[in-house]
Design a protein around this nucleic acid. Structure first.
Lengths: 137, 137
DNA sequence: TGTTGACTTAGACAAAGTCCAAGTTAGGAT
DNA sequence: ATCCTAACTTGGACTTTGTCTAAGTCAACA
């Protein structure tokens, strides 16, 4: 994640302790935290960090393409640092657990030109839903 | 939509004017209203209808499988009465416009067993994104 | 026509996110 | 090293979206 911070600094980002902490919290695989969860974990490392700054920083990371915003449930948005490898999401209908998954083929290819209605379509997000092993029991 | 109301009555629904109005508002193709939009249109026909009733009724229609809930943006949920023909959604990144679309093949089939991690996967929701003709200009 | 449980209502509350004016600070300039 | 200033952060007010509850109303059956 250090390279992330360096990369952003190269783009004119000011490297503040708040931004460093948010980037640290978002490090890892299968991370899909809500903004408030990010804030809670950031506060553990930097007690004075405000909610507004967490929201701002997450929004900037999304705008810069370093983090994905995922809306799996119509409630809080979640932030996924795994932006550099294409993937989709598998969500448990019972407990809400989320996993990154890698379907075969390019989902975009399944939409014929006749079904694009003049849109310049650039992405396809797939959410698979079902019960996880624990919730099936 | 009258058959819808009759069907629900057969399932023990009490047929109130409020429920009738919500069902009327949701009638049509390419309808993807938020709860507050449904409420606004319902109020035009039945001024005393409350927000709580609109939320309750939408929730019931979803639970009964007559209406789909779609979360395209992490903001308000939208309600799609086209629940009986499988389809996906194409969303404009500029203005938020939504269209129903019909991709080829079954998106579920693209997820291999090895990528299901023991989940009993039942549905796949696809959101295509891009700029609509107006927003491209 | 009466009865009753299901339905509706208004408003308080909660959760998620945005906005702003005032204060602080990273990092280039001196 | 220190100063300056635009960029950043802060707390809190505010908005939007959704849930809950106690009290009142009414659809449907008897």
């Amino acid at each position: 994640m250090n390279d992330l911070l360096e990369r952003l600094r190269g783009r004119g980002w000011r490297l503040t302790s708040q931004r460093r902490v948010v980037a640290e919290v978002l490090d890892g695989e299968h991370v899909h935290l809500t903004a408030d969860q990010v804030h809670a974990r950031a506060v553990a490392r930097l007690p004075e960090i405000s909610r507004a700054t967490v929201y701002n920083t997450l929004g900037e990371l999304v705008a810069l393409g370093e983090v994905l915003e995922v809306a799996t449930d119509g409630r809080a948005r979640r932030y996924d640092p795994n932006a550099h490898r294409a993937h989709q999401h598998l969500v448990c209908s019972g407990c809400g657990a989320i996993r990154d998954v890698h379907p075969q083929g390019d989902p975009l290819a399944a939409l014929p030109a006749a079904e694009r209605f003049g849109f310049a379509v650039t992405t396809a997000e797939v959410t698979y839903r079902g019960l996880c092993p624990d919730c099936r029991a």
